[in-house]
């Protein structure tokens, strides 16, 4: 019995190591998939950094670096060629935004239409902290009897 448990544990461990080995190999495999025009490791590395900043519009929760969609492959190729032509990262991001809008950027710019997106979470946090503060202040002002577990509170009485 013990031996069988040990066996299955070993098998599980083997699966895990295999899976993680695959996971570390995956990004490399993805970059070699599209036809490589610039077999230049420096451009390839810069392209992958840029591609990780851009949303694939076909499969919207993936970056262009992650996605296997045809459009993502085309855009990776486009980025490679633009980098090879000596365009800067900024210029390439602008090129993409001109065509696909701010939505392609995983880090959208801070402006009027994205204001709520950027300050919204902070605003909610402030609101929550403010509410907490008010509730605590109110409870502080209450008489100690109000917290007596033996006295039924007004909710339970109803």
């Amino acid at each position: 019995m013990l031996e069988r448990i040990l066996h299955s544990l070993l098998a599980a461990l083997l699966c895990l190591t295999l899976a993680s080995a695959q996971a570390t190999e995956a990004p490399v495999a993805a970059t070699t998939e599209a036809p490589v025009v610039a077999a230049n490791p420096e451009i390839e590395a810069r392209m992958m950094v840029l591609a990780a900043e851009l949303r694939c519009l076909v499969c919207q929760n993936q970056t262009i670096a992650d996605s296997h969609a045809g459009l993502a492959e085309d855009l990776r190729q486009q980025i490679r060629e633009m980098l090879a032509k000596g365009m800067s990262e900024r210029q390439i991001l602008d090129y993409m935004t001109e065509r696909y809008g701010d939505f392609v950027l995983y880090r959208p710019p801070f402006k009027a239409s994205t204001l709520l997106l950027w300050v919204g979470p902070g605003l909610l946090l402030l609101l929550a902290l403010g509410t907490l503060w008010r509730v605590l202040r109110r409870r502080q002002a209450m008489a100690p009897e109000a917290f007596d577990p033996d006295t039924p509170d007004e909710d339970a009485a109803r």
């Binding site: 519009l57 076909v58 045809g70 459009l71 085309d74 486009q78 065509r99 696909y100």
Partner: peptide
């Protein structure tokens, strides 16, 4: 054939 004009027009679907 290579989708270059498509990219210029922001085609994705």
């Amino acid at each position: 054939p290579e989708g270059r004009i498509g990219i210029d027009y922001g085609v994705y679907g």
